[in-house]
């Protein structure tokens, strides 16, 4: 793998709740993400995995430590990051074409050029017939595809995905996992993919990090490099079964999960 694209060093995050009490979500989190690699972060809800993505994206600042990129640029937001959240954030008053073209529009790319680029991506994700539709006229899978296309519109070097397929049914999720892999392979893009689904991580990632509550890294493992991986291999090959068990143990043995979950409850 290449040089580190993103380096987290001793990152900590403390949130202050409305009643003034402070909750420490992450403490002393350090890891590097290699350029061009596909890294999955698995963890239960409350483990702080989304917080890590939000900090890499620049939506929130770390309370301690640093997050550095290879080029040394500290300005946020970085323009070479695409971020896909679980929640749909297509603009309801724009059709698919104008949504996908939006990242280029805010960068001042001319209409003809950005729409040509958007059409190309819309075709790539299989929505060519739906470019005039509005988000509320799209199915869950179509919305996700449109969001994927929008994320790719500005051709970002780094993609951050936060449980992007969590709300989809199993078959659709499998389809989109393969499509994302297809879009990524050979692109040289760095992907940080957050999920709570171990199978999803094992199918897609070069490397899986299991996060326990507080941001403690319980497992950090490189997967066998052979690709493409078949779903059946990931399910039934002995080496993957062993990996699955290791990751599952890390998530279920999380000592802080219960207290964190209780503290986070409204």
């Amino acid at each position: 793998m290449g040089a580190p694209a993103i380096t987290l060093q001793n990152v900590g995050k403390v949130f202050v709740r409305d009643d003034g009490t402070a909750v420490s979500v992450l403490e002393h989190v350090s890891f590097e993400i290699a350029a061009g690699s596909f890294v999955c972060i698995v963890g239960r809800s409350g483990s702080g995995k989304s917080t890590i993505l939000n900090m890499i994206a620049g939506l929130i600042e770390p309370s301690a430590g640093t997050i550095a990129f290879a080029d040394g640029v500290t300005r946020r937001p970085r323009l070479d990051i695409g971020y896909l959240t679980q929640k749909e954030t297509l603009l309801p008053w724009r059709d698919v074409l104008r949504n996908v073209a939006l990242p280029l529009e805010v960068r001042g790319i001319a209409t003809a050029e950005r729409e040509a680029r958007a059409r190309q991506l819309i075709g790539l994700v299989g929505l060519a017939d739906a470019e005039k539709r509005y988000p509320r006229e799209l199915s869950g899978g179509m919305s996700r595809r449109a969001s994927l296309a929008r994320m790719l519109a500005s051709d970002p070097a780094t993609l951050l995905l936060d449980e992007p397929f969590g709300a989809l049914d199993a078959q659709l999720r499998a389809d989109l996992q393969l499509e994302l892999l297809g879009l990524w392979q050979g692109s040289g893009k760095t992907i940080v993919f957050v999920t709570h689904d171990i199978d999803e991580a094992l199918l897609m990632a070069d490397r899986v990090i299991a996060l326990q509550s507080g941001g403690r890294i319980a497992v950090d493992v490189d997967l066998p490099p052979a690709r493409p991986r078949a779903v059946r291999d990931v399910r039934f090959a002995p080496e993957f079964i062993a990996l699955h068990e290791r990751l599952l143990d890390a998530l279920t043995s999380d000592p802080g999960a219960r207290t964190i979950a209780a503290a986070a409850a409204p």
């Binding site: 620049g58 937001p77 954030t89 990242p103 805010v106 960068r107 500005s154």
Partner: peptide, 10 residues
């Protein structure tokens, strides 16, 4: 979330 998404686009 929409504001954040568009802000992240730059």
């Amino acid at each position: 979330d929409l504001v954040d998404a568009v802000w992240l686009m730059g």
